[in-house]
């Protein structure tokens, strides 16, 4: 009986995930309406619940895929995986005003360049303060402070140790999750309330999941603009990390 049901959950994993996430959405939006009178957006509550569930399951199983490490929730991993995420994010561009994009092109590029430089610099300075002196390790950690993809790609290209690569992924995860949680709280103070500001935000932050979830919890209309610039960040980071940034770091620490 139980085995038969388990098999069904396994076979229909994605269907189970749709239903489960639907319940989380319902609970979150009702909680937003009833307990915060809509001040905290329902999507912010739902994303927070998702992160909390991921910690709980991660601590219980020791796995790396959040709730998806439990067979019952395996479909959540598929639903939240790169394929569906990218399909849905591209769909949000439907109805975007071309003029808004055109007007912000140059600022978008400036944001990307500045965002990457400050992220690398922050990661490298912090690693230096923690006593790291090896230019490969410094660059890898700086790359992790950009995104959790730039970190391992850069580390692998430079031949960094697996501990450094793991640390760089962890740094990128910390960034992504902090951006998810801090964006809705800080949006009002930094003027993040229009498409152009969202494009700047996406370019500077760069962490795709953080930007998308943070903007979704702030104002869903801004998501496509932030996602548009953020999508270039990881690729550019992977490009300059093992080359330009590494050469600069090597010249600075003189190894």
């Amino acid at each position: 009986m139980i085995a038969a049901l388990a098999g069904l959950v396994d076979k229909y994993a994605l269907v189970v995930a749709f239903a489960l996430v639907g319940i989380v959405m319902l609970v979150s939006y009702q909680a937003s309406r009833l307990f915060t009178r809509g001040r905290v957006h329902g999507s912010a509550i739902a994303i927070f619940l998702g992160l909390a569930a991921a910690v709980a399951v991660g601590l219980a199983t020791g796995g790396r895929k959040g709730v998806a490490d439990l067979p019952l929730f395996a479909g959540v991993g598929v639903m939240g995986g790169a394929m569906f995420r990218d399909l849905a994010i591209v769909a949000t561009a439907y109805g975007v005003r071309i003029e808004d994009l055109r007007a912000s092109g140059v600022q978008g590029m400036v944001s990307l360049a500045l965002g990457l430089l400050v992220a690398f610099a922050a990661g490298i300075v912090v690693a230096w303060c923690f006593g790291v002196r090896d230019p490969v390790a410094l660059t890898t950690l700086g790359a992790g402070a950009a995104t959790y993809i730039v970190g391992p790609v850069t580390g692998a290209a430079l031949g960094a140790s697996s501990e450094m690569i793991a640390l760089s992924i962890a740094a990128g995860l910390v960034k992504s999750i902090l951006v998810m949680m801090a964006t809705p709280a800080l949006a009002r103070f930094i003027g993040l309330d229009n498409p152009r500001a969202a494009m700047i935000f996406g370019g500077v932050m760069g962490t795709n999941s953080g930007v998308i979830a943070g903007l979704a919890a702030t104002d869903p209309k801004l998501v496509p603009y932030g996602a548009m610039t953020a999508t270039f960040y990881t690729g550019l980071g992977c490009l300059i990390g093992p080359s330009l940034i590494y050469f600069i770091v090597r010249a600075l620490v003189g190894a």
């Binding site: 995930a17 749709f18 996430v21 639907g22 989380v24 959405m25 999507s43 739902a46 994303i47 619940l49 998702g50 992160l51 569930a53 991921a54 910690v55 991660g58 601590l59 020791g62 790396r64 895929k65 959040g66 709730v67 998806a68 929730f73 959540v76 991993g77 639903m79 939240g80 995986g81 569906f84 995420r85 849905a88 994010i89 769909a91 949000t92 992924i169 995860l173 992504s176 999750i177 998810m180 999941s209 998308i212 979830a213 979704a216 869903p220 998501v223």
Partner: peptide, 15 residues
């Protein structure tokens, strides 16, 4: 996409 982002958040290595 919001439910999808929730699923994404839930399957991150937050631990």
């Amino acid at each position: 996409y919001i439910p999808i982002v929730v699923a994404m958040a839930a399957s991150q290595n937050v631990r």
